[in-house]
């Protein structure tokens, strides 16, 4: 595979359609949230996240940072919601608390970066309903298996967003910071996939595609 063949977030309609076909096929075969009925609106998650980052372009790095801050904060809300529930074993809860702290660190660092550029951080999310901006399905989580599958979806969406951000950011240090965050989300995925009984390393190029 040649590097330059990998497309960025401004994905073509055909590519998005193909992606949605693949996901619908997986869902039809029962690979959705641990067997739970997955709402249809969860399907184009990458499309919605990638569109958000694509729309953020064109006015320097600040709009992309604002989108990334929102993504990290929403992820913290999702982790809080699951950690606060009754579905998790103590060991999984400990892991999720650690990952939640990482997401919080990402949000704080990105907020400092945005402020230093003269930007204004976005309003914080109001609650779990805001997680739907990124991935729908949090309200349908009924088991630890569902929770792990949901978080895999969410972390994968974050990897996709940071993958796309690389082609849009211009400040060198922001490029490096976003890559170091993307790599951390990938490490979260390794642990979550293992806990969910999945292959921890399915992709040599971790782009956020599933």
């Amino acid at each position: 595979m040649a590097f330059v063949a990998i497309t960025d977030g401004a994905a073509s309609t055909a590519e998005v359609a193909a992606f949605e076909r693949d996901r619908r096929e997986l869902l039809r075969r029962g690979f959705g949230l641990g067997g739970t009925a997955l709402v249809a609106s969860s399907i184009p998650l990458l499309w919605s996240v990638r569109s958000a980052f694509a729309e953020a372009g064109g006015d320097g790095d600040a709009p992309i940072l604002a989108k990334a801050i929102n993504l990290e904060r929403v992820t913290v809300v999702a982790y809080d919601s699951l950690i606060g529930g009754e579905l998790l074993s103590p060991s999984v809860r400990r892991v999720l608390r650690r990952f939640r702290a990482h997401e919080q660190e990402h949000a704080a660092t990105l907020t400092r970066s945005l402020t230093s550029l003269g930007g204004t951080p976005p309003a914080p999310p109001e609650g779990p309903a805001d997680v739907d901006q990124v991935v729908e399905g949090l309200r349908d989580v009924r088991s630890q298996e569902d929770a792990l599958s949901f978080l895999i979806e969410l972390e994968t969406a974050a990897v996709a967003a940071y993958f796309d951000a690389q082609a849009k950011l211009s400040e060198p240090k922001l490029l490096q910071t976003s890559a170091s965050i993307m790599a951390n989300e990938g490490q979260h995925l390794v642990v979550l996939r293992r806990r969910a009984g999945r292959d921890p390393l399915p992709n040599a190029f971790e782009t956020g595609e599933q």
Partner: peptide, 13 residues
């Protein structure tokens, strides 16, 4: 720029 995205996908792996 696309080399950056792909390099980031390798970093993550």
């Amino acid at each position: 720029k696309k080399l950056r995205s792909t390099a980031a996908s390798i970093i993550t792996n």
